[in-house]
Nucleic acid binder design. Structure first.
Lengths: 105, 105
DNA sequence: GGGAGGGTTCGAAAATCATCGAACAATCCC
DNA sequence: GGGATTGTTCGATGATTTTCGAACCCTCCC
């Protein structure tokens, strides 16, 4: 019934600033976050930067973002649905996400 | 006349977001930035986190912040004066620095 | 049942980063 | 001049990160 594995997410107040900043400090991961800014996306449809990556590498990129509390990753069908944790991030670090999304490269 | 070495700083438009985020993603470096939020500080007076660090390690922490364009480090007497590059950061990534300074840990 | 599609986990190899001590440079001040 | 103060740079070592392939798990669908 439940599809893929339920993976752990930090609670709102467990989200740590340095960990979030680190997660966002990689070009591929930042590209992912910017794609998600437009709304939830299926993981298969969410492609990191230019260069192709092995699927295990992709999985790792999402893992870092998930464990930092930047996004939520829930099973959906045979895949996963990714959502930016906007409200949680905004509550804890007001303006941060917006600044990162709007800022230059 | 000029004191210690003149060290390179990126120009405003060379400041890269991922590099800035990475520089800020370390607790010691973040602590430095927060201290500098109160105004310029002599390097000797600027102490990273709790744990003591060798002076070469301290120097390295400041170097990462300087090369990322987060702070300016100019010779002053036998030491150095550190200044947050607020205007440059604000121009390039509006709201980012403030969010990082104000946000939770 | 048995593919095929989508992802995670594991283990290993490569690259990057942090940390330190030692050596060196520039400044101040006696 | 000479010593103390303040920092940088270099080289080495250890710790994290990144990346990948291989093995495995679930789900959809025929």
């Amino acid at each position: 019934m439940t599809s893929g594995p339920e993976l752990p997410h930090p609670a709102r107040d467990e989200i740590a600033l340095t960990q979030v900043l680190f997660a966002l400090s990689d070009p591929d991961r930042l590209a992912i976050v910017r794609q998600l800014a437009g709304g939830p996306l299926e993981m298969k449809a969410c492609t990191p930067g230019e260069t192709a990556r092995a699927k295990s590498t992709r999985s790792h990129l999402f893992k870092v973002l998930r464990e930092a509390g930047v996004l939520r990753s829930v099973p959906q069908g045979r895949g996963r649905l990714l959502t930016l944790r906007r409200a949680d991030l905004e509550a804890r670090f007001p303006g941060l996400l917006q600044a990162v999304l709007d800022g230059a490269d």
